[in-house]
Design a protein around this nucleic acid. Structure first.
Lengths: 352, 352
DNA sequence: CGATAATAAGATAACGATAATGTTTGTTTT
DNA sequence: AAAACAAACATTATCGTTATCTTATTATCG
């Protein structure tokens, strides 16, 4: 009794052929604008197809063609504006090239990531764009083995030997750190998450270099404020601000008074602003704050947050372009690794 | 010379059969845990499949089974937190039920929506969840005709006669309006977008009713501040705040001084805050502000924004459940229309 | 021990499209 | 007017699975 919900089944090529009095093959050629059909019959066939509401069966089509015109995107979660922008841009590009996007979310969990990869593989995708969660690359080897083109974004897995596109985290942190240093900061704290991601490691390193280049000491105990990793994944971004608030409040209450904060996520700045406000520490007069990400609300903070404009559209654009090149076989060989340098958006929080 | 990028082609059932010395049929039965295979050969086959890295070809499989285990989601854009939450939740649910999600973005454009629908149809989806852009439902009739189960969210198209899940906009606007009225507001302005969406119409109507029930007059010229529709779609949400800022600033500069604002989007509150701040109008002492959506940054505004907690996860959850019921043929007949009542989050912006 | 039932596997036919050849028919060429 | 050729369509094979129907083999039981 499990009656299928679709009333009558979709008309097939055969059905159409019977109605028009021709062969399925001819119908196929007519509808796909391939030669071998007279103009009049072609028109007739198209009209009839329209009338019957014929839609070619993708399953059959992709079985023959070996392609589904679909690319997969694996990211941790699209509530994160970074990733939602990324996915949007990929979708836009893909659509342009006649591809659709299959969305797989890993929720920052290694297990879910494995599952997502697994499902991606059995989905018969033409290609895959992914922002990996884990540092270990073993989860991705099945993708490599399957021969499905893979392009990584945001987080690198060098040993995998695949193309990689990302914002330049090193250049980014130097830009933000240099910006506050250039404006007279002498005692800068980097407020960032304590997670084993290459992106975060890059930021810490770049931060350190930037300080040292300005002849300032770098001591992890004084110059780093680390947000403990979340115990479990939480969808809402605002918890990041909460965590940052707690860490900042704790730091300030221990009597520490840096003259600038550089953060790894605009949401951290949100929490930091509150901690500072509560203690009557004025921005930018007493302390400068430099964000990361240029999230939509930063321009409306008080004072407006100076931050880093991440070129996520650009990253997504290039990654998708590269992936499509791979799919269409027009990609040159060799592994491409591109890091796109972000831009500063200087606003009130660093302008004395 | 368009050489396929995958080196050697994936092993098929036939290949496996040849290696093991059995028939493709038997292999299929063994791998899918169907009866008719001895335990020993089953184990042997599975081991061999593992060794060769065999992955069943979905194209072939779904051609036979008539299903691809995929549901489509059409929303305008996932940069909007409402929609990204929605899509996330759908993905979570779908994944749970063994389905993957195809993402199609309409970018608030009727033309792109038509295109998305078109692509959805030729993708052989098992079902479709959509937040329609247009008021006219003609674009969706091909979906109905195709027999693919369709569930609408957020924006209703009654004449289409399909299931509909949404947050209760009417109840929502009454909650927010009543909240400021209960706190002593006598002159409330609704700041909302001037777009022909059913959601917005519902909000205006509910707002009006709420005022009238409290014995207050409603005059569109005084109680409505409408944000002109954007000329073109813009991905970044922050423009909404800009637009709201302009409209609010204009209103205030004309000398209008309401004692409360109720807005249709938290981003509007962001712009409104700035307009008020610039004119030294204090929140909540001079004017209360009530938001809509409980976006992550609202708790960190100064003062924290009272707002409306939209049950988007719940909406997505129920809509997906219903869609899966349709797909699996376990859905009862009749059209379901559910509007889930949101909850208030009262914070500093309305607490005198 | 022989008849019957259960089990394991093979053979063949879908699924619905496209690709590669065939076969007409009609038109041009010399 | 016979040969050569092209256009328009038909025929058949194929993609990789699953489903159905057989057949061969082994177990069960009186």
């Amino acid at each position: 009794m499990v009656e299928t919900s679709r009333g009558r089944r979709q008309p097939t090529l055969q059905d159409l052929a019977k109605v028009v009095g021709l062969t399925a093959n001819t119908i196929s050629r007519a509808l796909n604008d391939r030669p071998g059909v007279s103009a009049t019959t072609r028109a007739l066939i198209k009209a009839e197809a329209e009338r019957l509401g014929y839609v070619p069966n993708v399953h059959a089509r992709s079985l023959v063609l070996g392609s589904r015109k679909t690319i997969g995107v694996i990211v941790s979660n699209i509530s994160n504006p970074f990733f939602s922008d990324l996915v949007s841009e990929v979708e836009l590009q893909a659509q342009h090239a006649g591809y659709t996007v299959l969305l797989l979310l890993s929720y920052e969990s290694a297990e879910r990531e494995r599952d997502a990869i697994d499902r991606a593989l059995r989905c018969g995708l033409d290609g895959l764009i992914a922002a990996p969660v884990q540092e270990r690359s073993t989860a991705w080897t099945p993708v490599i083995k399957s021969g499905i083109p893979l392009v990584l974004v945001s987080r690198e897995l060098p040993e995998l030997g695949v193309d990689f596109y990302s914002t330049d985290n090193d250049a980014g942190i130097r830009l933000t750190t240099d910006a506050v240093l250039a404006r007279g900061a002498k005692d800068v704290v980097l407020l960032d998450e304590d997670m084993p991601f290459s992106t975060i490691r890059l930021r810490t390193e770049g931060f350190r270099h930037s300080l040292e280049q300005h002849g300032l000491p770098f001591d992890p105990r004084y110059n780093l404020a680390l947000i403990p990793p979340a115990r479990s994944f939480r969808v809402s971004q605002s918890w990041h601000a909460d965590d940052a608030y707690r860490v900042a409040a704790d730091l300030l209450d221990r009597g520490r008074r840096p003259d600038a904060f550089v953060v790894g996520d605009d949401y951290y700045a949100l929490g930091l602003y509150r901690a500072l406000r509560e203690r009557n520490i004025r921005i930018p007069d007493d302390v400068m704050v430099m964000g990361w990400g240029n999230l939509p609300f930063t321009r409306f903070m008080e004072p407006p947050l100076s931050t880093l404009l991440l070129p996520f559209e650009e990253v997504a654009h290039r990654a998708t372009r590269r992936l499509l090149d791979h799919i269409q076989g027009t990609a040159d060989h060799g592994i491409v690794t591109e890091r796109i340098v972000p831009e500063l958006a200087i606003r009130g929080s660093t302008t004395r």
